[in-house]
Computed example of a mutant assay.
Amino acid sequence: MALEQCGAPAHRPFKIPQSVLVVIHTPALEVLLIRRAVDAPDGQAFWQSVTGSKDSLQESWHETAVREVWEETGIRADAPGCTLRDWGLENVYDIYPQWLHRYAPGVGRNTEHLWGLQVPAALPVVLSPREHQDWAWWPWREAADRCYSPSNAEAILLLPQFALP
């Protein structure tokens, strides 16, 4: 009898400490933020851009960005009128203590690769209720101010340099 059938939880593989941050925006620099279903440890609302880890070491950064955008928003990054751009930037940061258990023992830092996804207009979003509970489009400076993560806010502040003309 499998362990799952005896009531023991199935072993979930550890997360890979390589992730993407995708700033989704319109040509007018409105930025989509999504609110995590669980707020930050200090009780603040946890607004963020699309983020997510690679599913395997073989998955490319591009594949991870496309998959995460779809899973978290229902937006197809390769749809007509959408442009996904690799910003060629990475953040390396300490993983929040409350999420360290998701990673292999001894892993404490994550490398995050930055992307921008320009969409033709502020689109409706389909959230995964297990992960997120709300979404909104804001002007880029206001979106940066609402981000919980400093590295996410910094990425949004870079948007005018990377947005398509």
Rank of each mutant, 00 (worst) to 15 (best):
A2S: 13
L3R: 14
P9F: 02
A10H: 13
H11L: 12
R12D: 01
R12G: 03
R12A: 03
F14V: 00
K15N: 11
V20F: 01
V20T: 06
V23H: 04
I24H: 01
L29H: 04
L29D: 02
R35A: 11
A37S: 14
A37Y: 10
D39K: 14
D39L: 13
A40G: 04
P41E: 00
A45I: 03
A45R: 06
F46G: 14
Q48T: 08
S49F: 02
V50M: 00
G52W: 01
G52F: 03
S56P: 02
E59Y: 04
H62L: 14
T64D: 00
V66Y: 05
W70N: 12
W70E: 11
E71G: 04
E71M: 07
G81S: 05
G81K: 04
T83Y: 14
R85K: 15
W87N: 13
G88K: 14
L89G: 09
L89R: 14
N91C: 01
N91P: 02
V92R: 11
V92C: 12
D94R: 06
I95A: 13
I95S: 11
I95Q: 14
L100C: 13
R102N: 00
R102Q: 09
V107S: 13
T111C: 12
T111Y: 08
T111H: 03
E112F: 03
H113Y: 00
L114I: 06
L114P: 00
L117Q: 08
V119M: 12
P120I: 04
V126R: 07
S128W: 12
H132T: 03
D134W: 04
W135S: 11
W137N: 03
W140F: 09
R141W: 07
C147F: 10
Y148E: 12
Y148T: 15
S151Q: 06
A153E: 02
A155K: 08
I156D: 11
L159V: 14
L164H: 13
L164T: 15
P165I: 07
